[in-house]
Design a protein around this nucleic acid. Structure first.
Lengths: 250, 250
DNA sequence: AATTATCAACCTGTCAGACAGTCTGATGTT
DNA sequence: AACATCAGACTGTCTGACAGGTTGATAATT
């Protein structure tokens, strides 16, 4: 076991596994490996580093958990394409352990979506305009079906994030959306009334129009109005449920 | 840049280790464990689930990589307090493998900071006002020392995130800041001229004043101006470096 | 009695070897 | 040239073992 530990490293006191993690990350960076590229197999690294297989295995599994590499039985580990799943998992966990509240998530989403709308207005392509228009119609069409309505609403916002042509925005918003959607289906969030949904349709049409007109200012303003309405509805719902609790009336 | 799911996700990759991961997460949720609470030891879970120790170990290490649990030699695993380190690691990796560009990070930061400023204006406490004011002075004071200047600039924005009283904002902005700071120190980002720094000081003073005056509108507007300036400087720097490359002149 | 020192039990970190199931690419067949 | 087959490589899981860190109760000291 030629695992030479410098005494100076004891301050960091990192486990061998963590060191191997960093080694692999450094390897990816050094070799400029791209998503899909193969990494050394466990045994190759074992021989190369003179460590036991457990250590190398755990390092790979940790990186897999972070969504950095992909490991599947029988195949060499590969660099993985980044996606929102890890972020979703973390957000989900943070929310379910009450370290982060739904209000906080919604606030973050608000800030991101407003700016995202103005970016989308500047960058949207004609194809994306088509898709956005169609989705806006779908939202209106399914106004009476809360389930589909929510579904199309989320899709609308996802299209907008794509139109901003910023991968990180699409990624983060996707994670936030997923978390919010989950809260909604769990009945933890606002139940929208028909009037509220009608207003939301109008607001979405405003957003769509502004974005397609490449008017960043108007798009941001419309999105601001949208989230102001959402916030208002959420506050009303919270107050309403309290009233319901207090009075026992509907 | 599609945020679509791979069709290979159709069947959940259910290795035993992944199942144990989910089991532990479910356990934390079910028992409503809070950060710092102890989890079952490896051996306890081994007996409880009738699996080998490797499987349980790898599950714990994966969760540790995600920042969900904390494992240290000799001690039982504990639920960990959420922090930005995982997000930083992921962002750092995404940036270094060119899956995400610095511009994209900066854009996300822009959207978040603008809204964050308006939230801060509504929620800042007098103590936080004090700290913000002091930091604003520090920025001005160290205007001639780029290193300290950047340091205080980051601190200013961190204080603002705290004043917004939204843990998620603080968390995400911290991760974005760290990544941007790293790019700056690596010389990958803009080198600010003295005039630019002077302008930034003014803009920070504007932000500070608006926030302390509890004027959300003005705070957002000031922050927008700030990032418009940053963006402009970045664009100029990019054009300048291109010019430098092309002409060989300074 | 209060404080400190000690130690045993528990726990994680690492190593070694083994076997089963999966995947890939080369080989051979049609 | 297209296809079927198969050996080799690779990961998933299990068992057993030992070193070293951590903790809390017990014993020793003041």
């Amino acid at each position: 076991m030629p695992a030479k530990m410098d005494p100076e490293d004891k301050i960091i006191a990192t486990s061998l596994t963590s060191q191997v993690e960093r080694y692999i990350i450094a390897l990816i960076r050094r070799e400029q490996l791209k998503p899909g590229d193969a990494l050394p197999s466990e045994m190759q690294l074992v021989e190369q580093l003179g460590l036991s297989r457990s250590v190398v295995r755990e390092a790979f599994r940790s990186l897999a958990a972070l969504g950095i590499v992909e490991i599947r039985s029988g195949r060499k580990p590969r660099v993985k394409t980044f996606d929102s799943s890890v972020l979703e998992l973390l957000l989900n966990f943070a929310a379910s352990t009450a370290q982060v509240s739904l209000e906080q998530i919604l606030e973050v989403r608000t800030g991101m979506e407003i700016y995202c709308a103005s970016l989308a207005a500047q960058r949207i392509t004609t194809d994306e305009e088509q898709a956005l228009l169609q989705e806006t119609c779908s939202i209106e069409k399914y106004i009476s079906d809360p389930e589909s309505f929510t579904q199309h609403d989320l899709r609308f916002h996802r299209l907008l994030a794509q139109a901003a042509h910023n991968f990180l925005y699409a990624l983060m918003l996707q994670a936030l959306h997923q978390q919010i959607h989950q809260s909604i289906t769990a009945g933890l969030a606002l139940q929208q009334s028909a009037e509220e949904r009608a207003r939301i349709v109008t607001l979405h049409q405003d957003i769509c129009a502004a974005v397609c007109a490449h008017d960043a200012e108007k798009a941001a303003a419309a999105m601001r109005r949208h989230f102001a309405a959402v916030e208002q509805a959420a506050a009303a719902a919270a107050a309403g449920s309290q009233l319901y609790i207090k009075t026992g009336l509907k």
